[in-house]
Amino acid sequence: MKPGIVNPKGPGKSKPRLHASIKKDTVNPSDYLKYDTRFSCEDCSHFDSEKVLCTIGYNPIHHLKATQTRQYELAGNMAFCRFLEID
């Protein structure tokens, strides 16, 4: 028997996810165009723009403005940070 994680799906199947996936919310296109919404790390008080990191320890890669815009244009949804704080 090989050491490691036992795949509950069985041999030859995809491996189980080891981390939670990012929840993405659908955004209404008319709202996206109509409102100047603050939704990215660059808008947040917890973001250090010089070091490109979140000061409370979260990974900002999915919440950066360029990533958010690209995700919206591809799929019509965005991964909003639940800890966004605007001054």
Rank of each mutant, 00 (worst) to 15 (best):
P3F: 07
G4V: 03
G4N: 12
G4D: 13
I5V: 12
I5K: 14
I5E: 14
I5P: 04
V6T: 11
V6H: 11
P8H: 08
K9L: 15
K9A: 15
K9M: 15
G10N: 01
P11L: 09
G12R: 13
K13P: 00
K13W: 04
S14F: 04
S14Q: 07
K15Q: 11
K15V: 09
P16H: 05
P16Y: 04
R17N: 11
R17Y: 08
R17I: 11
L18E: 13
L18G: 15
L18W: 06
L18I: 09
H19M: 14
H19L: 14
H19T: 15
A20S: 10
A20F: 09
S21A: 12
S21K: 11
S21Q: 11
S21E: 14
I22H: 01
I22A: 01
I22K: 00
I22N: 00
K23T: 15
K23Y: 14
K23Q: 13
K23F: 11
K24F: 06
K24P: 02
K24E: 05
T26F: 07
V27C: 06
P29C: 04
P29Y: 01
P29G: 05
S30L: 15
S30F: 14
D31I: 07
D31S: 08
Y32H: 12
L33V: 02
L33P: 00
L33C: 04
K34M: 03
K34Y: 05
K34T: 04
Y35R: 10
T37M: 15
R38W: 05
R38A: 12
R38T: 07
F39T: 12
S40V: 11
S40Q: 07
S40I: 06
S40C: 15
C41R: 06
D43L: 08
D43N: 15
C44E: 08
C44D: 10
C44G: 08
S45F: 13
S45C: 11
H46A: 02
F47E: 05
F47C: 10
D48A: 10
S49G: 11
S49Q: 11
E50A: 13
E50R: 13
E50Q: 14
E50M: 09
K51A: 13
K51L: 13
K51R: 15
V52T: 14
L53S: 08
L53G: 02
C54T: 06
C54K: 09
C54M: 09
C54L: 10
T55I: 08
I56F: 07
N59W: 03
P60M: 01
P60L: 03
I61G: 06
H62D: 14
H62K: 12
L64D: 02
K65W: 03
K65Y: 02
Q68R: 01
Q68T: 01
Q68Y: 00
T69L: 04
R70Q: 15
R70Y: 12
R70E: 15
Q71A: 13
Q71R: 03
Q71I: 05
Y72A: 00
Y72T: 00
E73M: 04
E73S: 02
A75V: 01
A75W: 00
G76Q: 07
G76T: 06
N77D: 12
M78N: 01
A79V: 00
F80L: 13
R82L: 09
R82I: 07
R82Y: 13
R82E: 14
R82F: 09
F83P: 01
F83D: 09
F83I: 04
L84Y: 00
E85C: 03
E85N: 08
E85W: 02
E85R: 08
I86W: 02
I86E: 07
I86T: 10
I86N: 01
